[in-house]
Each structure stands twice: as structure tokens, then as C-alpha cells.
Design a protein around this nucleic acid. Structure first.
Length: 318
DNA sequence: CATTCGTGAAGACGAAT
DNA sequence: ATTCGATTTCACGAATG
């Protein structure tokens, strides 16, 4: 198992203890990636985590070591740098503060810590929200899906559904739900892979969110959507797409599509029409792009052929 | 040889109990 | 929470070209 967790990845390369300019001891958190010299203001340029390297997600195997997490600087709304007001009784020149000033500083300190604790929930929220948009980006999802996902998470947080749940699980689930609500065809499998999670575990979170927050069944994207997706994915002759779509439409309101994985059915249509158009893609290829097995493709094909008589004129006319 | 087709065992999932 | 039925996957071998 490769390193899956970036959440608390240490970034101690470039870590220093003393300021290279004035030699003073640096303060700051090595995990946050920044340190500052209290005297001269020098800030270490710790190697910044430029983000997960999953931008160019390829279709296939490359993403074995997908990691999850965000650059600390973006994930934390305060950039991980908080201001502390110390208890010293001297000002920056070393002079003692007069009692009036001391009282003022004391008040400031109190209020600062109060506002910080008040904001803690808000901070957690913004944290998750940024993870959601990251996941959406990794999946090349349009903005409206990210918006929807954020909306879903907000309400689920409000309803306390997200309480003591895995952040990763919740993000994956909300993103997947958002895909379905927006009619964007991403499979559970794809979302799970991009999030670096088990499919089953994403499914559990998804069901939870669906039941508790959405409360209404959101149907998976239509077979047509899957067909177009397949075609786009593997650069297939547009004629095949048109044929597959008409085929699918002609047979849509039928029992064969109920309870079946839409991706498998879509693959069957694509395969069938590729044969009819004389392109003849191998089952293997179609099945692979649809992320189903050849067996499933075959079974769907058999059902289609069993239930419908496909004549060339029939498809050629419309 | 590559591709297709069919099968049984095993796992996963949803619905019903 | 467990059981049950349908679906999907896996692993194989046979047929086809």
C-alpha cells in the first residue's frame, strides 16, 4: 500500500531552526510549511505542496497512487497561520507597557480567542468545501456539480448528518450525489477511485446522504448519457453513436433496462451498433471503457437481441 | 492467434422478512 | 439483522474466423 494519506503529510524538508539573516530562533509550525523570524521578519520558503498531482488523470491504470488531500494553504481558511497575542508586558522595543495598555492588550487577547472558537465550525466547513471542489476538479466535473455538492454538504452539516463522519467519505458521497442530480455520468467507481476510497464505502456514505439529506431517490443518468460518454472516451465513429442512441431510444421503455447497470446496457448498444456499422469494436474494448465485464456486455446484447428484431431498414429510417 | 460465446461458482447489492 | 433473489464478476474452456 502506497502512501494514501496526505492529510498530515509532513513537510520537514527545508525545515530550519534559526534565521539565516539574523540568526534568531525561528517560530512557526513546520507542518504548516512556514516559519518566520520574530526579529527580522524572514519567512522560510519551505517547499510548498503544490497540490495533488492528479490533474492529468488518465483513463486507466495510472491513478493507482492517487492521493487525497489539499495543499494546506488552500485547505485552511486562515492558511494555517494564526496570530498569537503573547502575554509579555513589553512592547516591541522591550519597553514595559503601562497598565492601561496592558488592560487593552488583555482584552484583545480574550476577544481574539473567543472569535476563533466561534469560527471553528465554520472553519471545518470551509475545509470540507475545498476538498469537495478538489475532488470535482480531479474528476473534470463542471462547476455546477461542485456547487451542488457544496450545497448538499452544507445542508447535511446543518442537519448534523455529517457529524462524526469521515470527511473523505462525505465529500465523495456528496460529489457523487451531485453528479446524479446534475445528470452528469460519473460512476460510483470513478468517484471512489478519484477519492482513493473503496467503492463500497463510498456507497455506504452515499446511501446515508441520499436517505437523510436528499430523501428522494435520484435516478442514475440515462443510458443515452452513458453512450455519449463511451463514445467520447474512446473516439468512436459518430455514426456508431447515432445508431446506438436511436437503438437505445427505440428500446428504452422496456423491461430490459430495469435493475440493470446502465453502463453495461450502454456498452451493449455501442457494441451492437459498432458491429452494424461495420466498425466492429472488440467486446473487450467497449467493456473496458464502460468499466463492466465482457460477460455483462454479452448478456445485455443477448437480451436486446432476444426482445427486439433489429432490421436494417428499421434503424436506417429513423 | 484473436475474438467471441457460454457456463458455474462466488461476491455484492437491494428488498423483504 | 438476516435471508433471499437477481445481477455482476471471475475464471475457464470451446467455438469461430
Amino acid at each position: 500500500m502506497t502512501d494514501v494519506s496526505l492529510w498530515n503529510a509532513s513537510r520537514d524538508d527545508g525545515f530550519r531552526t534559526s534565521c539565516p539573516v539574523c540568526g534568531n530562533r525561528l517560530i512557526g509550525d513546520s507542518e504548516k510549511g512556514e516559519q518566520v523570524c520574530p526579529t527580522c521578519g524572514y519567512v522560510t520558503v519551505a517547499p510548498a505542496d503544490s497540490g495533488p498531482e492528479w490533474k492529468a488523470m488518465d483513463l486507466e491504470e495510472k491513478n493507482k497512487r492517487v492521493r487525497v488531500g489539499s495543499p494546506t494553504t488552500l485547505a485552511l481558511h486562515d492558511f494555517g497561520l494564526t496570530t498569537e497575542i503573547s502575554r509579555t508586558m513589553r512592547d516591541s522595543h522591550g519597553k514595559y507597557l503601562d497598565p492601561a495598555m496592558r488592560a487593552t492588550v488583555e482584552k484583545m487577547r480574550k476577544w481574539q480567542s473567543r472569535t476563533r472558537t466561534i469560527n471553528s465550525e465554520e472553519r471545518g466547513l470551509s475545509n470540507v468545501l475545498s476538498k469537495i471542489s478538489e475532488l470535482c476538479e480531479a474528476l473534470n466535473l463542471p462547476d455546477n456539480v461542485a456547487e451542488t455538492a457544496a450545497q448538499i454538504y452544507r445542508t447535511s452539516a446543518k442537519m448534523k448528518v455529517a457529524k462524526s463522519k469521515s470527511i473523505l467519505g462525505m465529500t465523495a458521497a456528496t460529489v457523487y450525489l451531485a453528479c446524479r442530480k446534475c445528470g452528469v455520468s460519473r460512476t460510483l467507481k470513478e468517484v471512489a477511485r478519484a477519492a482513493g476510497m473503496e467503492k463500497g464505502s463510498v456507497a455506504r456514505y452515499f446511501r446515508l446522504v441520499l436517505k437523510e439529506v436528499e430523501k428522494e431517490y435520484v435516478p442514475p443518468p440515462s443510458v443515452e448519457k452513458y453512450i455519449s460518454k463511451l463514445i467520447n472516451k474512446s473516439q468512436i465513429d459518430p455514426r456508431v453513436e447515432r445508431l446506438a442512441l436511436t437503438l437505445s431510444r427505440k428500446t428504452s421503455d422496456s423491461k430490459i433496462s430495469s435493475g440493470k447497470a446502465p453502463a453495461g446496457l450502454a456498452a451493449a448498444y455501442v457494441y451492437l451498433s459498432s458491429v452494424m456499422e461495420g466498425v466492429h469494436l472488440p467486446q473487450r474494448e467497449v467493456a473496458e471503457s464502460a468499466e463492466v465485464t465482457e460477460v455483462t456486455v454479452r448478456n445485455r446484447c443477448r437480451e436486446i437481441l432476444d426482445n427486439f428484431v433489429i432490421r436494417q431498414e428499421f434503424v436506417a429510417v429513423k
